[in-house]
Write a protein that binds this DNA or RNA. Structure first.
Length: 366
DNA sequence: CGCATAATAT
DNA sequence: GATATTATGC
């Protein structure tokens, strides 16, 4: 994603652009021309359509209403001042409410809805979506943040592992994938996993800051990658709390693989050693052990036959699918950040050609 | 540590 | 509902 934007460096095509652009254009061409009227009508039409969802998309309603009004009043300027304010009002900075002390729900929600709404409009009107890769103002920062970031945030709602009861709309939306998607689905865009270095911030609504390209370029020398908050065992005392699933992001896996190599292969490396080499903060032996187990299973026999072919039965032994494939990106030196990982992430998690890459099996006795 | 299996996530 | 990925137990 990030990389994709290289060709289009311009200003952040924020959501509003769609409307403001259009407005600008028409306003420019001819004020009060039939086109404008038509547009207003269409807006109203949509307003009517989403009326049924006004409860779901209150902001959407608001936006449309505002837009319509603005148009009617002809108060729009080439810069479409009317649209902006409104939107920004709801699309703050995705500031992630800091520590996420239980809050952070509202804002995020709002954002989601707004985005959905716009998407809706955008789609229907057939405007080539103008917002692509930058829904996140502080994208770059996150790169770093995600790694060292708020250990606290992860915790908060882990109280009782409410994962189960998660609702679809709890997730973060990703206005990254333009058109063609229904607002409904928008909220579920599967961008999850692979970005985060740390624990998955899957369902629990927390951890809002996972989007965009995580593994940007940076020397892996920074030994400590911070993942999940270790500390604070639930305020109470129940140690029964299960730990959250560790999400093996490409970056993490990369480290894993790297360590594996240094240790002489998956068959000879031990969880502890691996973990130490990985130097990932918060990573536990068990987690590594588990991952190693999976890795070994997948590589058991046919480490090269990169195509395990979808399972058929219940046994899932020989298939090292896409996830592992990311290991192909080995860097030239111990310091190479591998910008490729970015591409991998941004582009196609499933298509990555990982043909002759799994040769990390080289078992050399110690 | 490694394997088997339960628990979850997709 | 099937799978895939992680967590846990032994």
């Amino acid at each position: 994603m990030c990389s994709a934007s290289d060709s289009s460096p311009p200003p952040p095509p924020f959501v509003p652009r769609t409307i403001s652009h259009f407005l600008t254009e028409i306003a420019d061409v001819a004020d009060g021309s039939p086109r404008l009227d038509d547009f207003v009508e269409r807006l109203q039409g949509e307003l009517g359509k989403i009326d049924a969802f006004k409860r779901e998309l209150p902001l959407c309603m608001l936006l449309l209403s505002e837009a319509i009004e603005a148009l009617k009043n002809g108060s729009l300027r080439p810069s479409a001042p009317s649209a902006r304010p409104v939107l920004e009002q709801f699309i703050p900075l995705e500031k992630d409410s800091g520590g996420g002390e239980g809050i952070g729900e509202k804002p995020k929600d709002a954002r989601t809805r707004t985005a959905s709404c716009l998407k809706l409009v955008d789609t229907e009107e057939n405007f080539s979506s103008s917002f692509d890769l930058n829904e996140n103002p502080k994208a770059e920062l996150q790169t770093e943040i995600i790694e060292e970031q708020k250990p606290a945030a992860c915790e908060d709602q882990s109280q009782f592992r409410t994962c189960k009861s998660r609702n679809a709309d709890t997730r973060k939306s990703h206005p990254l994938f333009p058109s063609a998607m229904a607002s409904r689905e928008l909220a579920e865009i599967p961008l999850h996993g692979f970005l985060s270095l740390g624990v998955g911030m899957k369902n629990p609504s927390e951890e809002s800051s996972s989007s965009n390209c995580t593994i940007s370029g940076r020397s892996r020398t920074i030994s400590s990658v911070d993942c999940n908050a270790p500390s604070s065992p639930r305020g109470g005392s129940q140690q029964t709390a299960k730990k959250r699933r560790r999400a093996w992001s490409p970056e993490l896996h990369r480290r894993f693989i790297d360590a594996l190599q240094q240790l002489g292969g998956a068959q000879v490396a031990t969880p502890k050693q691996i973990r130490e080499l990985m130097q990932v903060n918060g990573l536990t032996n068990d987690e590594v052990k588990s991952h190693l187990q999976k890795y070994r299973l997948h590589h058991q026999r046919l480490p090269n036959k990169a195509f395990p072919a979808r399972k058929s039965g219940v046994l899932q032994d020989l298939q090292m699918a896409r996830d592992i494939s990311s290991d192909s990106l080995k860097m030239s030196g111990p310091q190479s950040p591998s910008p490729q990982s970015l591409l991998y992430i941004a582009g196609n998690p499933g298509l990555t050609s990982h043909t002759a890459s799994d040769s990390l099996e080289e078992d050399r006795e110690l």
